[in-house]
Design a protein around this nucleic acid. Structure first.
Lengths: 295, 295
DNA sequence: GGCCTTCCCCAAGCCCGGCTTATGCTTCAA
DNA sequence: TTGAAGCATAAGCCGGGCTTGGGGAAGGCC
């Protein structure tokens, strides 16, 4: 079995024409070179070198091996260089999956920082809501999934969960609504209003919270398009509960955001697979996301 | 430092999708594969594999390495194959240098045998007289030099000397010469004749022999072209002393070969460098030359 | 011509690294 | 729920590579 180590030695010997010089070039002693070449000749089954007094020449087999060695060692150094680039963040791709309101705020900040610090890296983004995004993560379709949860659950126990921020939910009411100028309104006071809900998980949680307050909300519209929700509220078609993150990034003309009581929070996290966390590009991206969340 | 061994393991893991299966394919145990991959990941500086429950996937760095591994391992097996062909006499070139009368008899026989037994090999031939041919051997311009000597000398002590045959010298006289029909003639009886000598070394030796017999030959012609020598003798322009090998292979119309007294012999040998003797093609060629000499 | 330098080979010894066996844990399927 | 399969870890053995030390041969210089 020919080993790359042998070829390196052969190349050095062929280049310098001497075992001693090759040893100096390789940073080892001359007997080491001597033994390597003996081992290589024995595994080749034929002499590779001709020692004729002063100079060292290659036999036909030695020439053949040296010729191949050039390509093989070039391939090896190319491989090492590419891996080093990936490890050193001079290259690398991170596939991100995010839910919509995350991708509109956290992601642009983090991607911009990533791009500024490591111009060789590339970040791609696909939008998907949590249950689907986690499936994609497990299936290998992305490296990082942004997701949110209203309360801890063992659902992600086998994943790396990096908390980014906790997001307060705020109420959104038409600006001519009686409570539009209140500092804070109880959810129960909106019991009779028509509701506009968000994504399925948000809608379910909204129902849970309202039932805990003693009523079941009448949901007239459900859409995960936050600008649409804001538009509907602004048009006076109902009230909504939105994450603060979404309200910040959406123009809500004709609507007014109001703090809710009791306070409802959701936790926005980045998820990845344990084996992917130490990948430099993934780690760097997680750090940037975390920094964007702290802002 | 990436080693070929690592790449083989990586390829097996990528192909089978499992450490255990890779271990079976490689003929080792599963912990061996596990350790190799850990070592490779550590030297790469980034994870290469993602273990996600059931299946084993490659990271971006793993993909890059596996991509390079294909080419590198292909190059290695190509190198091994080429060397194996040279070692197994399915390929290989032997450069032969011979003196003229050797190349006309021994060499064709040996080359034919070589070609018959190992069709993949190639033998090239250049003619040169001994001092020059040995220089070429030492300079790396050929692998085997055919040479002859009249008596042992330390001149070739650093070479491999393979005796092929010992060649008697015979006298060549015009067929109308008084001794043309003798069974044997003393060299001294030709003292007064005009002589035709061969190559420089042969000429020198001729002079030595004659002086030992008490006379100095008058040399009218000197040429290492044996047919020319035979022609000159046939034309009655003098007498000559030739190796039996040369007389056999040269038409000598008008001349007659006669045994000499005292008997003079020369030894025909094949020379090579010690390091070249174990080269399969060289060894095979030496054997064929030896066999041709025994014939 | 003699000495010195250089280079290679050989032998002995140390040390690191890889492989194996044994064991535990997790996951998946029946 | 239990059995099977796969991966990780630890301990121990073994081989192989490297180093040091010494010797021999060839070439170069004075």
């Amino acid at each position: 079995m020919i080993e790359a180590r042998h070829l390196r030695v052969l190349r050095a010997v062929a280049a310098t024409g001497s075992f001693s010089a090759a040893a100096r070039e390789l940073g080892c002693t001359q007997p080491a070179v001597s033994q390597q070449m003996k081992a290589l000749e024995s595994s080749a089954g034929t002499p590779l070198l001709v020692r004729t007094g002063r100079e060292m020449r290659l036999t036909e087999a030695g020439e053949a091996l040296a010729r191949h060695a050039a390509g093989i060692l070039a391939g090896l150094t190319a491989a090492e260089e590419e891996v080093a680039a990936l490890a050193g963040l001079r290259a690398g791709r991170v596939r991100l999956v995010s839910f919509p309101s995350g991708s509109s705020t956290l992601v642009p900040t983090a991607v911009a920082a990533m791009r500024a610090d490591h111009p060789g890296t590339r970040v791609s983004l696909v939008e998907a809501e949590p249950p689907r995004s986690v499936d994609m993560l497990r299936a290998g379709d992305c490296e990082i999934a942004l997701a949110f949860r209203y309360e801890p659950s063992p659902e992600w126990d086998d994943l790396v969960v990096r908390p980014l921020l906790t997001d307060r939910l705020v109420g959104l009411v038409p600006e001519d609504h009686p409570f539009a100028d209140s500092a804070e309104i109880g959810i129960g006071t909106l019991a009779g209003e028509p509701w506009i809900a968000g994504c399925p998980r948000c809608r379910r949680h909204l129902v849970d919270v309202c039932e805990a307050e003693g009523f079941t909300p009448r949901i007239d519209f459900a859409t995960d398009d936050y600008p649409a929700v804001a538009g509907l509220v602004g048009a006076g078609l109902g009230v909504a509960v939105l994450p603060e993150l979404a309200v910040e990034s959406v123009r809500h003309k004709g609507a007014r955001a109001v703090r809710l009581a009791p306070e409802v929070r959701r936790e926005v996290v980045a998820l990845t697979l344990p084996d992917l966390e130490p990948v430099p590009a993934v780690a760097a991206m997680l750090d940037r996301l975390e920094a964007a969340g702290r802002r």
